[in-house]
Amino acid sequence: MPQNSQQEKFAVIPGMTMIRANKSYSGSHSGMQYKFRLADDELEAVVWPWPWCLEKTDPEGVVSARFALTEEGMRQAEDWVCRQYWQDHRRWDKIRQAPMW
């Protein structure tokens, strides 16, 4: 996944049991927020910009992808979220540094 040591993996789902029990897991990295959630017997990964919650964010700023609800699908979803950050890290860093109000 990482192309160099700077591109570390930061999005890690604690495990399939946790996802099945809680239905979602969320986190953030720099100015990017992410969520893993169950959706129609699949694992959906979603990213959106800081600072608002997913429900209050303009849908045009939200990107998602679906994966198999398996251990391999979890790894693919984690990698996908990390790629979303690294492909546009300057944007996410700029969002993080912007004043909230």
Rank of each mutant, 00 (worst) to 15 (best):
residue 48 W to L: 03
residue 77 A to T: 00
residue 66 R to A: 09
residue 52 W to N: 15
residue 9 K to H: 13
residue 87 Q to E: 09
residue 87 Q to N: 07
residue 82 C to K: 01
residue 44 E to N: 08
residue 29 H to Y: 13
residue 99 P to F: 14
residue 87 Q to W: 03
residue 7 Q to F: 10
residue 92 W to S: 01
residue 16 M to K: 11
residue 60 E to H: 09
residue 18 M to L: 15
residue 99 P to I: 12
residue 34 Y to W: 03
residue 11 A to V: 07
residue 1 M to K: 12
residue 91 R to A: 11
residue 49 P to H: 07
residue 24 S to Q: 13
residue 46 V to P: 03
residue 83 R to Y: 02
residue 61 G to I: 08
residue 61 G to D: 15
residue 35 K to R: 12
residue 67 F to D: 02
residue 17 T to I: 11
residue 86 W to P: 00
residue 41 D to P: 02
residue 70 T to A: 00
residue 66 R to S: 07
residue 38 L to I: 04
residue 78 E to N: 01
residue 8 E to H: 14
residue 57 T to D: 04
residue 41 D to F: 08
residue 93 D to L: 12
residue 80 W to N: 07
residue 47 V to S: 07
residue 82 C to H: 05
residue 99 P to D: 15
residue 5 S to T: 14
residue 97 Q to P: 00
residue 49 P to T: 04
residue 56 K to G: 02
residue 101 W to G: 15
residue 49 P to V: 09
residue 61 G to N: 14
residue 61 G to W: 11
residue 93 D to Y: 10
residue 51 P to S: 11
residue 61 G to T: 09
residue 63 V to Y: 10
residue 63 V to D: 10
residue 47 V to P: 05
residue 20 R to K: 15
residue 85 Y to C: 02
residue 22 N to S: 14
residue 62 V to F: 00
residue 58 D to Y: 04
residue 101 W to I: 14
residue 17 T to V: 11
residue 83 R to I: 07
residue 30 S to Y: 12
residue 75 R to C: 03
residue 78 E to M: 02
residue 62 V to T: 02
residue 34 Y to S: 02
residue 54 L to N: 00
residue 7 Q to I: 12
residue 40 D to K: 13
residue 91 R to L: 14
residue 42 E to K: 12
residue 44 E to G: 07
residue 69 L to G: 01
residue 101 W to P: 11
residue 97 Q to T: 06
residue 72 E to F: 05
residue 19 I to A: 13
residue 42 E to A: 12
residue 85 Y to F: 10
residue 97 Q to V: 07
residue 95 I to M: 10
residue 42 E to Y: 06
residue 28 S to T: 09
residue 18 M to V: 15
residue 42 E to Q: 10
residue 76 Q to L: 05
residue 33 Q to A: 12
residue 12 V to Q: 12
residue 51 P to V: 08
residue 75 R to N: 03
residue 77 A to M: 01
residue 23 K to L: 13
residue 35 K to Y: 08
residue 38 L to R: 02
residue 59 P to S: 09
residue 39 A to N: 10
residue 70 T to L: 01
residue 73 G to V: 05
residue 64 S to Q: 03
residue 50 W to N: 08
residue 76 Q to C: 00
residue 83 R to S: 06
residue 46 V to A: 02
residue 50 W to G: 07
